[in-house]
Amino acid sequence: MPSASGRRLPSDRLLTVLTCPLCPSGLIRTDGALRCADRHTFDIARHGYVSLLTGHRRAVSADSADMVRCRGSFLRAGHYDPLARTLVELATELAPPDAVVLDAGAGTGHYLAAVLDALPGALGLGLDSSVHALRAAARAHARAEAVGWDVWRPWPVRTGCADLVLNVFAPRNGPEFHRVLRPDGALLVVTPTSRHLRELRAPLGLLAVDPRKEERLRRTLAARFRHARTESLEYPMSLTPEDATGLVAMSPAAHHVDPAELRRRVGALGTPVRVTASFTVSVYRPRGPQGRRAES
């Protein structure tokens, strides 16, 4: 909802989901900020997101402005559209049309927006520690809200409020995934396989993906979740040198590769740059009394 100044304010429905990160209280809107009963106050940024982080500096791994710009350009070009479609298909099967969807490590909000398009009454909440990503996520969709938060920490979100949690190439906080999900909720996790971007690894000096990554993921979540199913997705991409450069620059590798050297190495690959996209999309259900419903 917009304010008198035109600034987008958090929706009434979001306020039923969020909690104060400093005490158990709920939050209300007041004077361009969110405030709890104990008067802990959190400003609403002019870009529309709310940062609930207090007393902590931005995470070292948070996306920079350049990383967010590169990611936005790459995703808008459609190279990961098959992945977005897979998430949409699963989301519409797993969640009701009026779901509360949480995206942990939402980045620009690209995948959250795709899911919200398919769930006409849903509320989306993207959590991320990057101010630059939050600015994009806050305007990714009319029903998407963005909140600044470190997803490794306990979330300022009510217990059992979410129908669906998305986790796409982002840190995994198993205890919080489990806590915020409803009894019949679902967790969707996307990880790259060892074949992802394999053509770029040696020429560009990228780190290899652990071939046992999916196995480690299941072990990490096993205490609180049961693995329901997995969708494998692999397809070729034909990229321009600019796309290939942006693909690397939008990832954590951007912290370790000199931009000029990256452009030189990509230029040596020729045109077009043919690259494999390869992902695993896994569905998890909560264990315990809340996870006993039969799988969809």
Rank of each mutant, 00 (worst) to 15 (best):
H47I: 13
T276Y: 00
H141I: 08
L75E: 12
H56F: 06
P183Y: 10
H178W: 01
V17A: 15
A144D: 06
M237D: 09
F177E: 00
L187K: 01
D117C: 02
G288A: 00
A99D: 12
H79C: 11
A133N: 14
A114P: 09
L15I: 08
L127G: 01
V88H: 09
Y284P: 04
C161H: 06
S5P: 03
A114R: 09
A136W: 08
R57M: 12
A113N: 01
L217Q: 11
T230G: 13
F225T: 09
G160P: 14
S73M: 15
L9W: 00
P183F: 02
G105F: 06
H132A: 15
A77V: 13
R265L: 00
N167T: 12
L102N: 06
M250W: 08
A142I: 07
P183D: 11
A144F: 05
P171W: 03
L262A: 10
D38V: 02
R69K: 13
H40N: 11
L75G: 06
Y284D: 05
L247W: 02
L102F: 12
I28G: 11
T191G: 00
G72M: 13
F177D: 00
R216S: 13
R216P: 02
E93L: 15
P236R: 00
P183G: 08
E176T: 01
E93G: 15
D258P: 05
A244N: 08
D128R: 08
G148S: 00
L262D: 06
G185K: 09
L269K: 02
T108C: 15
R212D: 06
V157E: 15
G205N: 02
A95R: 10
L112R: 08
S278N: 05
R46P: 11
R172P: 08
A91W: 04
C20Q: 02
R219T: 09
V147F: 05
E89H: 15
L247F: 08
G148P: 05
H110P: 15
A249W: 13
A65I: 13
F42N: 01
T108K: 12
E145Y: 14
A4D: 08
R212I: 07
C36Y: 07
A122C: 05
L262S: 06
R85E: 15
A162W: 14
R292K: 14
A113E: 10
Y235D: 02
T108L: 12
E176I: 04
S238M: 09
G148N: 06
E199P: 00
T193P: 02
A106E: 08
S194T: 03
I28L: 14
H256Q: 14
C70R: 12
R7Y: 01
L125N: 09
A137I: 10
R219D: 11
R224F: 07
P154G: 11
G270W: 02
D117T: 04
G72Y: 12
V151R: 12
L123T: 11
L14R: 04
R263L: 03
A91P: 08
A137Q: 06
R198T: 04
L247E: 07
R158E: 07
H196D: 09
R46L: 14
S3G: 12
H132F: 06
V168S: 07
T16C: 05
R58F: 13
H40L: 05
D128L: 07
